[in-house]
Amino acid sequence: MKETPSSTGHAEGTGRPFRAGPLLALMGLTLVSLVFVYPFAWMFFASFKENRQIFSPLKLWPGHFGGQYYGQLFSGEWIPFVRVFGNSLLIASAQAVGAVAVTSLAGYAFAKHRFPMRRMLFVVSLVVIVLPQQALAISLFTWLDALHLSNRLAGVILPGVASGLGILYFTQVFRQVPDDYVHLARMAGASEFRVYTTLLPMLASPLLSFGLVQFILAWHEHLIPMLVLSAADQQTLPLALASLYGSSLRFPFAVLMAGSTLTLIPTVLLFALLHRRFKSSLSELLVH
């Protein structure tokens, strides 16, 4: 909401719709955020605790902070942590870049071109949203095997590139670009691909925002990597952590919690960096 000078001058309670009183709202929000944050705080502090302490969740603070569980994680004693972290990073980045490139190109075509069967192709590509890979996992798995893509990172990266959400999003984004820009570039004799690339800089925010979403989705994916990657050093981070649990009763839970804590870093970091762009492209999308 745009905050105009006059609206701040209003008496509390009438300045904005539904003004519950900022203080009251803040109290409610603090309570809710506590519910959201407490398990994370617990996870973080648990990465310093012995098993015995972990299962008394009301004692949040660990006795002492020692890095030994992080050390065990990095030394590869339980899982090849560095390796699987790298795998996940590679898979998520490659899929994000691939999906952005492929779907933005298609979105440009859908938004700025008229051609036979345009509507039909558009609708067909949206069906991907409703029938996600997970639903096709079984036959995807046998098909990837036939393509010799099983146990390869590419087997996890490639299937996620054809994103229906990306088509929907980028068609909308390119529709909002004024036609004049496109015509100007065409008048200057640019090829259609060149027109597309000249538009990209002004679309940095939506491109990065969708890339972020795709990165997060790929970083989180569990079923497809589980089916495709069976070798221990080819696994992804969530897979390795999930397999660690239940491997033995004796292993220190803190190692698992340390690994889980580190899993958060890339997505949180990326989100913190792109937060502003993400918010602006979100409201851009919803307002127009």
Binding site: V102, T103, L105, A106, A109, H113, R114, L136, L158, A162
Partner: peptide, 29 residues
């Protein structure tokens, strides 16, 4: 003088997506 009526170019722009669409979605389906 627009909109542009060059279907071939448009299909070319759509090609990468539909390659992935066919290979990793339609065939498994």
């Amino acid at each position: 003088e627009e909109p542009l009526q060059r279907p071939r170019t448009a299909y070319l722009l759509l090609l990468p997506f539909f390659v992935f669409f066919v290979v990793f979605w339609l065939v498994p389906l």
